[in-house]
Design a binder for these strands. Structure first.
Ligand SMILES: Nc1ccn([C@H]2C[C@H](O)[C@@H](COP(=O)(O)OP(=O)(O)OP(=O)(O)O)O2)c(=O)n1
Length: 710
DNA sequence: CCGATTGCCTAC
DNA sequence: TGAGGTAGGCAATCGG
C-alpha cells in the first residue's frame, strides 16, 4: 500500500501511522508499506475488513564471530546497494529497517552448541527478501568477515509469517482491542464490507479455540448458476457470441437449516412468478448482468459456490463482460477498485495429476467450488451434478434437456419459468451438498488443526499444512528454518515399505489381521525422529552416553538423540494431528446415520493423511520445501524391521512347540499389517489369539507404537 | 514373440 | 515456496 503523509485529527490514526512517517524519504510525501488485509466475520455475520499495519517481513542469516557495529553498518550498505540495482526498489529510501542480533538455532541437525548468534534482518517489503536471499546465497563478505551462505526463513509467504508470529490460526476467532483501531467512515473505506478498520498488528490477538470460540460464524454462502444459449443452434456456448439468459443465486447462512435459504433468479425477458423465489427480469442481457454484479456486492458473500464455477460459470461471466464491454460486470471482489480477471495455467501434482486450471481473483471471497471439493474428497464413477446429487442427496436435477433451451427461452414467460426452475435447482444443489457433506465444517476444522488459512486448503497441497505447523513450532521453541537447502531437486528415491509375499490359497480357517496404529507418525514419536535430532557427526555427541542415542541400522546408519536430550519438533506436530484424528474417529463411531458416518470417516482420513504427509514432507526430494531423506529413510527402515519382527514373533510364539494346537502362519502383510492363520477353525478363538498377539507384541515396542487387532 | 518401459490405479 | 512418500498389479506400447 502507498502511505501518503498527512496529519489526521484522530489520535488513533496518527499513532497507527506514526512509524511510517519515519520511513518517508527526503523530498517525498509517500512510502510503500506492507499491509495485510484480513477478511473477517463477526459473530452476527457482519463482514469486516481488518487492515493490519506495521508488521514487516524479515529473515535470518548467521552472524560471523566478532561482528561489530561498523560491520553491521557495512552490511546494511551492502544490502541497500544490492536492492538499488532494481529500479523499483530504488525509489524506497529506507529499505532495511532493522538488523538485530538474536540467539537462536538452526533446525537442521542436532548440535551440542545449542543457541548461537544470528542476525535478524527486517525489511520494508516482502519482495525484497528473495532478492536479498540470492545475494547471501552467493556469498557475502563484510570487512573480511564472510557470512555463511545460508539464509533462514526467507521463503515463507508473508501472510503466513504474520499469522504464525501472532499465533493466529486459519478460520479462528480474533480480538481487536477496543479503542486501538480506526473505524473507517464510509467515504474512507476501500472495500464493500459492512465494516472496515485499520489496526496495528500488536492490537490484534487470537482467541483460544474453546467454548463459544469453537463455533463457526454465520458465513454467507452464495451459490449461483448461469444458463446460456447457443444462438446458432448446436455446440458448446462461447462467451464471445452466446448470451447468458439466466443467473440463479441462492443465499445460505452457514449453520442454518438448509431449507432456510433465499432464492433469486435473474432472467432475460419476462419470467412467470415462482413461489418461494424472487424473480427479477430484464429486457436486455447487459442490464441483467450489471444488476447481478450489484447484487453480489450488496449481498457481500464470504463464500461463492456452485458447480464447476471456476472452470465454467465465472470465466463465462467475465468473458461475457469483455464481449459486451461491461466494466461494471467485473467487480466481484470486496475491494472497490479491483476487478476480477482470469489467469489460465497448467499445473501438475502427484495427488491430482496434470491439469489445466483457471485462476480468478475475487478478493475477500472464497471460491468454494463444490465440483472441485467432491473430486478431491470422493471417488465416484461420474462427477456430474446430477450423479453426485443422486449419490449423496437422493435428489436429481430438474429435467430440462439442453437442446430445447433455445425454444423455451424464445417462447413465453411460462416456458422461461421452466428454465428458471431448473436454474434455481442447480444453484440449490451445491448448497445442499455443502450442508450434507459438512464441507465448511470439515475445512474449518482442518484450517484450525493445521493453522493454515482456509483458502490455502483449496488452492495448495499437503506441504503448506506441514510448513505452517513446522514454522509455528519452531517459533515457539526458538529454532530457525533454512530456506537455502542444499541440492534442491535431487529427485532421489529411497526404499519404502515391505509387502509380504502372499501365501496363496483358499483359507477355510479364519484369518486374523493385526495392524499398527498410525505407523509412521508413531515411529516418529517413539524414536524422536526430526530434523533437529538427527546426528550428523560424532563431534556433536561427544558428551552423550550411548543410551542417549537411537541408532537406525539400514543400508546406512542414521542416528538421532533421544527425547531426554532434546525433543524433536516433528513428533510434536504429528502428536497433535493424531489427537485430532482420534477425536474425529470417536465422533464417527458414535454416528448412526450412514451418510454422516461416511463424512466423518472422510474427516478422520484427511487428518490421517495430514499426519502421514509429515513423513512424506521429509521424503519429498523433488519439489519439497524441506526434504530430509535421512529422516524419511529412517522411518521406512524402522517400519520394515517392525513388520518383519511382528511376523517372526507371531510364528515363533504361536506354534506347537510352544504348546499351541497349531502352527500360526503369516499369510500376507503390507507395510504395517500381518494377516495370520492361527490354524484354528473357530472364529472366536482366532479373535482371542489375535487380541492376545496384538497385546503381547505391542509390549515389544516403544510407546506409543501399538499393534491393534482389527 | 519377448522383455522392458510407461501409464493408470490402488494399497499402504 | 507449484507439486506429501513408495510398492506393486496390469494393460498397452515400443524396440529388437
Ligand atoms: N496415504 C498414505 C497411507 C499410508 N502411508 C504410510 C504411513 C502409514 O503410517 C503407513 C500405514 O498405513 P495405514 O493405511 O495402515 O495407516 P496408518 O497406520 O497411518 O493409520 P491406521 O491407524 O488407520 O492404521 O503407511 C502413507 O505414507 N500415506
Amino acid at each position: 500500500m502507498t502511505y501518503v503523509n498527512e496529519n489526521d485529527t484522530k489520535k488513533t490514526v496518527n499513532s497507527l501511522f506514526a512509524p511510517y512517517k519515519n520511513l518517508i524519504g527526503k523530498d517525498k510525501t509517500y512510502v510503500s508499506v506492507p499491509i495485510i488485509r484480513m477478511y473477517c466475520v463477526t459473530n452476527e455475520g457482519c463482514s469486516v475488513l481488518v487492515n493490519v499495519y506495521n508488521f514487516f517481513p524479515y529473515f535470518y542469516i548467521h552472524k560471523p564471530d566478532l561482528f561489530e557495529k561498523e560491520d553491521i553498518m557495512s552490511l546494511e550498505m551492502k544490502m541497500n546497494e544490492h536492492l538499488n540495482m532494481n529500479n523499483q526498489f530504488k525509489t524506497c529510501d529506507h529499505k532495511i529497517l532493522k538488523i538485530e542480533i538474536v540467539k537462536t538455532e538452526n533446525l537442521m541437525y542436532f548440535k551440542k552448541q545449542g543457541k548461537t548468534d544470528f542476525l535478524k534482518i527486517t525489511v520494508l517489503l516482502p519482495t525484497f527478501i528473495s532478492t536479498l536471499k540470492k545475494l547471501f546465497e552467493n556469498g557475502v563478505t563484510i570487512n573480511n568477515k564472510s557470512i555463511v551462505n545460508i539464509v533462514y526463513e526467507a521463503n515463507l509467504p508473508f501472510i503466513l509469517r504474520y499469522l504464525i508470529d501472532n499465533k493466529i490460526t486459519g478460520s479462528s476467532w480474533i480480538k481487536c482491542e477496543k479503542g486501538t483501531y480506526y473505524f473507517k467512515p464510509k467515504d474512507k473505506k476501500i472495500s464493500n464490507c459492512s465494516f472496515e478498520i485499520d489496526i496495528n498488528y500488536k492490537h490484534l490477538s487470537p482467541l483460544p479455540l474453546e467454548d463459544d470460540y469453537q463455533l463457526i460464524p454465520k458465513l454467507r454462502i452464495l451459490s449461483f448458476d448461469i444458463e446460456c444459449i447457443k444462438l446458432d443452434g448446436k455446440g458448446f456456448p462461447d462467451a464471445k457470441n452466446d448470451p447468458i439468459i439466466q443467473i440463479s443465486s441462492v443465499l445460505y447462512y452457514q449453520g442454518d437449516p438448509i431449507d432456510k435459504c433465499t432464492k433469486f433468479i435473474f432472467t432475460l425477458l419476462e419470467c412467470a412468478t415462482i413461489p418461494g423465489s424472487n424473480v427479477i427480469w430484464f429486457n436486455d442481457e447487459q442490464t441483467m448482468l450489471e444488476a447481478w454484479n450489484k447484487f453480489i456486492i450488496k449481498i457481500d458473500p464470504d463464500l461463492l459456490t456452485g458447480y464447476n464455477i471456476i472452470n465454467f460459470d465465472l470465466p463465462y461471466i467475465l468473458n461475457r463482460g469483455t464481449a459486451l464491454n461491461l466494466k461494471k460486470l467485473k467487480y466481484l471482489g470486496r475491494i472497490k477498485n479491483i476487478f476480477s480477471s482470469i489467469k489460465e495455467s497448467n499445473i501438475s501434482s502427484k495427488q491430482f495429476g496434470p491439469h489445466d486450471t483457471k485462476e480468478i481473483n475475487i478478493n475477500g471471497r472464497i471460491q468454494f467450488d463444490v465440483y472441485d471439493l467432491i473430486r478431491r474428497d470422493y471417488k465416484l464413477k461420474s462427477y456430474t451434478l446430477n450423479y453426485v446429487s443422486f449419490e449423496f442427496l437422493k435428489e436429481q436435477k430438474e429435467d430440462v434437456h439442453y437442446s430445447i433451451m433455445n425454444e423455451l427461452q424464445n417462447e413465453s414467460p411460462e416456458t422461461r419459468k421452466r428454465i428458471a426452475v431448473y436454474c434455481i435447482k442447480d444453484g440449490l444443489l451445491p448448497l445442499r451438498l455443502i450442508d450434507k457433506l459438512l464441507f465448511v465444517y470439515n475445512y474449518v476444522e482442518m484450517a484450525r488443526v493445521t493453522g493454515t488459512p482456509f483458502v490455502y486448503l483449496l488452492t495448495r497441497g499437503q506441504q503448506i499444512k506441514v510448513t505452517s505447523q513446522l514454522y509455528r513450532k519452531c517459533k515457539e521453541l526458538n529454532y530457525v528454518i533454512p530456506s537455502t537447502y542444499m541440492k534442491t531437486n535431487t529427485n532421489e528415491k529411497y526404499e519404502g515399505a515391505t509387502v509380504l509375499e502372499p501365501i496363496r490359497g483358499y483359507y477355510i480357517e479364519p484369518i486374523s489381521t493385526l495392524d499398527f496404529a498410525s505407523l509412521y507418525p508413531s515411529i516418529m514419536i517413539a524414536h524422536n525422529l526430526c530434523y533437529s535430532t538427527l546426528i550428523k557427526s560424532d563431534y556433536e555427541i561427544s558428551d552423550l552416553k550411548p543410551d542417549d542415542i537411537v541408532v537406525v541400522q539400514g543400508k546406512s546408519v542414521y542416528r538421532f538423540v533421544k527425547n531426554t536430550v532434546r525433543k524433536g519438533i516433528l513428533p510434536l506436530i504429528v502428536e497433535e494431528l493424531i489427537l485430532a484424528r482420534k477425536k474425529a474417529k470417536a465422533l464417527m463411531q458414535n454416528e448412526k446415520n450412514p451418510i454422516a458416518k461416511m463424512v466423518l470417516n472422510g474427516r478422520q482420513l484427511a487428518l490421517k493423511i495430514s499426519a502421514n504427509s509429515v513423513y512424506g514432507y521429509t521424503g519429498a526430494s523433488a519439489g519439497g520445501q524441506l526434504p530430509c531423506l535421512e529422516v524419511a529413510i529412517s522411518i521406512t527402515t524402522l517400519g520394515r524391521s517392525m513388520i518383519e519382527k511382528t511376523k517372526e514373533k507371531v510364528e515363533n510364539y504361536y506354534n506347537k512347540s510352544n504348546g499351541f494346537e497349531h502352527n500360526a502362519v503369516v499369510v500376507y502383510g503390507d507395510t504395517d499389517s500381518v494377516m495370520i492363520k492361527f490354524g484354528t477353525p473357530n472364529i472366536t478363538e482366532a479373535m482371542e489369539l489375535g487380541k492376545d498377539a496384538a497385546q503381547r507384541i505391542s509390549k515389544e515396542f516403544t510407546k506409543p507404537i501399538k499393534l491393534e487387532f482389527e
